[in-house]
């Protein structure tokens, strides 16, 4: 077995077909030049060691990049990834929630549905992340290879070289005024949670007791018919909350206008909350009696305590409104 020929084959098999023969011949003559007269295998090995890894040598010959995504596109690639993954995750979550809520209507237990949503959501998010990651990487790897322009200038979102004009497209947001994506996510999540509890109160809100089969729902706290009679008002509140969250996402920072709309949302929310909570038939009488027996007070007192506790929410609202203006005014 001839080490030199094997080495040359190892180099040329990595090269484009048309240049293989020429490079092979040149390498062979160069290697032979390097060998002393009457050389041994040891000499050959020494020379080949000097030439180094055939893969490296071949990559020096070829113009193709030795990386999947190079510095030219890396920043753009990461930006796209950061932009697309959250959007795809939210869409996946919404679809999971929508399909699972239908399970409620079929009369599944609360715990089951909650667990299903939780597990499925995590799976879906992992799945979506892998999909986005894979396709985006493939796309950029292809762009890296077909890109005919041989400069190494990193690309911006406009796919061109960076110029100072790009700065005009960036909205500068001071940190104190910024509305974080997490804030928006939490407020949307909060809306989704309370809306779920509101419309499925007869399944979710009530007394649970521990039995052999785990937690069992004994009685609802609220009268679902009363809740449903306010549904158009509540839909307005949900709409206002989602609209404000999207507006905040779009603005990205606290301004006077955002703070004012925030106040409007809190006012609508608080008014509807008060209207609903003081409805005389809101609470399930069985539930009030159940609590009254446990605490040895009258069921009317129980109702008053609950209403007082719920009234703490508007206090949070006031704090939230003030905080909005404080942030809007900070520099």
């Amino acid at each position: 077995m001839n080490l030199i020929d094997v080495y040359i084959h190892e180099v040329t098999r990595r090269l484009p077909e048309k240049s293989r023969e020429d490079i092979g011949l040149e390498l062979k003559s160069s290697i032979e030049d390097m060998l002393p007269e009457g050389h041994s295998e040891k000499d050959i090995k020494q020379v080949l060691d000097q030439l180094g890894n055939p893969a490296t040598l071949a990559s020096n010959y070829s113009d193709r990049p030795m990386h999947l995504i190079g510095p030219k596109y890396f920043d753009l690639y990461i930006s796209f990834l950061k932009m697309i993954v959250p959007i795809a995750a939210v869409i996946a979550l919404i679809s999971v929630a929508a399909t699972q809520f239908l399970a409620f209507e079929r009369g599944d237990t609360v715990l089951n549905v909650a667990l299903d949503i939780f597990v499925l959501s995590i799976w879906r998010i992992i799945e979506v992340f892998i999909q986005v990651f894979f396709w985006l990487t493939v796309m950029f790897a292809i762009v890296e290879r077909v890109d005919g322009i041989k400069d190494n200038q990193p690309r911006t979102m406009s796919l061109n070289k960076w110029t100072s004009d790009d700065l005009k497209n960036i909205v500068y947001i001071p940190k104190k005024r910024a509305i974080s994506k997490r804030y928006i996510f939490v407020s949307l999540l909060w809306t989704a949670i309370w809306a779920t509890f509101y419309f499925f109160a007869s399944h979710l809100v009530g007394v649970y007791e521990k039995t052999d089969e785990g937690l069992t729902f004994i009685m609802p706290s609220l009268n679902q018919d009363v809740l449903n009679s306010f549904s158009s008002l509540v839909v307005i509140v949900i709409g206002a909350e989602i609209a404000l969250a999207l507006y905040q996402l779009f603005k990205g920072q606290w301004t006077k206008k955002v703070a004012m709309l925030n106040v409007l949302r809190e006012v609508i929310g608080s008014i509807v909350l008060i209207i609903v909570i003081i409805h005389p038939n809101l609470f399930n009488p069985d539930f009030l009696t159940y609590l009254a027996d446990n605490f040895t007070i009258s069921s009317e007192d129980v109702r008053k305590f609950i209403i007082m506790a719920v009234m703490l929410f508007p206090i949070f609202s006031i704090w939230n409104c003030v905080d909005g203006f404080r942030k809007a005014n900070s520099r």
């Binding site: 490079i23 040149e26 390498l27 003559s29 160069s30 390097m34 490296t56 040598l57 020096n60 010959y61």
Partner: peptide
Amino acid sequence: YGYSLVQSLEGSGVTIEQSTLYPLLR
């Protein structure tokens, strides 16, 4: 030719990896 180039460079004290030189020539 390749190897004579290596020698004349090394004669002037310039060391060059041969795995760099041959592709560079191309």
